[in-house]
Every structure is written in C-alpha cells, then in structure tokens.
Simulated assay, not measured.
Amino acid sequence: MNSAMKEFSQKGFKNASTDVIVNNASISKGALFYYFKNKKELFLFLYDYAINIIKNEILMKFNDDEKDIFARRLQASMLKIEILNKYPEIYQFTTVAYMEDSAEVKSELEIRNREIIAIGKGFLNEGIDTSKFKEDIDINSAIDIITWTIDGFTNKQMEKIKNIPFEKINLNELLEQMNTYLEMLKKSFYK
C-alpha cells in the first residue's frame, strides 16, 4: 500500500506504473493482481482507505459541542494541519487523487468527493449558533465566505509546513494568524 500510494502521489493515476509499485514493495505482479483486479481498483481502494483514516482522525478529535462557527472552523483547520504532519504520505496521496483528471477514475472520484464534502459541511455547520449573525446578513453566503477564507488560509499554511516535523510547528503563531482573519470576518458578520 505504501509503495502504491507513493507511486500514485508522484505520478498520478495515469502515469503510475504497477511495475514500479511491485518492485518497490518487493512482491510479484501476480500477488498485486490477486488482491486487485487492475490499477484502477487499487487506486480507488487506496483512496477510500486514506479518506477513512483522515475522516476517523477528525471525527475522533472534533468537538461538536462548540457552536460558534469561527471556533469550529479553526478547530477543523488545526486538525487538518495535525493530520498532514501525522500522515504526510496519506495526505499527499489524497490531495493528488482529489485533483486527478484521468477519465478512467475521474467520475468515481467525483462521486466520492461530493459525498466527502457533504459530510464535512454537515458536521461543520450542523448546530451552529446563527443568532450571532447580523439580521441583514445572508447566513448561507456568510458561511461560504468563512469557509473559503479558512480553507484558503489552511491550505496555504499546510503547503508551507508540509516538510516540517509537527513538534516544530508553532501552532500558537498559526492560531494568531488565523484569528486575525476570523476577527475581521466576525466584525463583518456578527452583531
């Protein structure tokens, strides 16, 4: 699995070689295809496996008792950063796979990704306290803007720190930077 994940991460689905995968894993091609009918089945299995690890990590640590949308989004972003550092190979693979455009797997990935996004939006938005928003604010549009801002910030930070050991990351500094953006959004959207 590690060999396949590495090969797909580096070359994408179309250019990944099952020969390289089996050579790096020190197994025969017959052994690989005993478990997986073809490269597509292997790729989709790995994607499902990786997503389940990420999802379980988030669900295990996510505190849904928090009702403030800004605190919730900050919490989710920090969990994303933690997962990147705990499982860098898995995170890299899922990032590459998420953007895969090979016709052979694209439609199946799109179905999976729509489901993942729906689940994520559900647990991030479910039960938030909307009474804090100004009366003249379209809450759904505000939530979209909050989401785009935090996702953009998180993705930018993750790219910066992806090769840094987790214990060397200054989380307080990241939190301060993100709070700057969150405070601006709060002033715009909250009473």
Rank of each mutant, 00 (worst) to 15 (best):
S77E: 04
I53K: 11
S131P: 01
N85Q: 12
I145T: 15
E135M: 10
I83P: 00
N56M: 08
N38D: 15
A25W: 00
A4Y: 02
T130K: 14
E110R: 13
Y190E: 00
S26M: 10
F133V: 01
Y181V: 05
A118T: 15
P88S: 05
T95C: 09
M99C: 14
T149N: 07
D129I: 00
A71C: 11
N38P: 15
E183C: 04
D65N: 12
Q92W: 12
T154K: 01
R112Y: 01
K37M: 03
I150N: 03
K29I: 04
M78C: 02
L74Y: 09
N56S: 11
D19W: 03
L44W: 04
S107E: 10
A76H: 06
N140M: 12
N15Y: 07
M158A: 03
E167M: 09
K86E: 06
I139N: 00
I54C: 05
K55H: 12
I81Q: 04
N2K: 14
Y49S: 13
T180I: 07
L185P: 05
G127V: 03
N2L: 14
P88Y: 03
Q10W: 00
K55L: 10
I145S: 13
L185I: 08
Y98P: 01
F133Q: 06
I81K: 10
K67Y: 00
M184R: 07
A118K: 14
V20F: 01
S17A: 08
K67S: 05
M5V: 15
N179H: 04
I137L: 12
M178L: 15
L44P: 05
G122N: 14
E108I: 04
I54H: 15
E110N: 13
N52F: 04
S3M: 00
N24S: 10
D19Q: 06
I117C: 02
T18K: 00
N155V: 08
E41Q: 14
F36C: 01
I137C: 07
F133N: 00
N63E: 12
S17V: 05
T130Y: 08
R73G: 14
D144I: 07
I117L: 12
Q92T: 14
I139G: 03
T149W: 00
E41Y: 07
G30M: 11
L74K: 15
D68T: 03
A50H: 04
E183L: 11
L42I: 06
N15L: 08
A31M: 09
N179R: 08
E173A: 10
K37H: 13
F62W: 06
F36R: 02
F70N: 05
P165M: 08
S17C: 03
N113P: 06
F123A: 03
N113T: 11
P165N: 10
Y87F: 14
D19H: 08
I27Y: 11
M60Q: 14
Y49V: 04
F189Q: 03
I150V: 15
D68I: 02
N2H: 11
K132N: 03
K121V: 06
E126F: 08
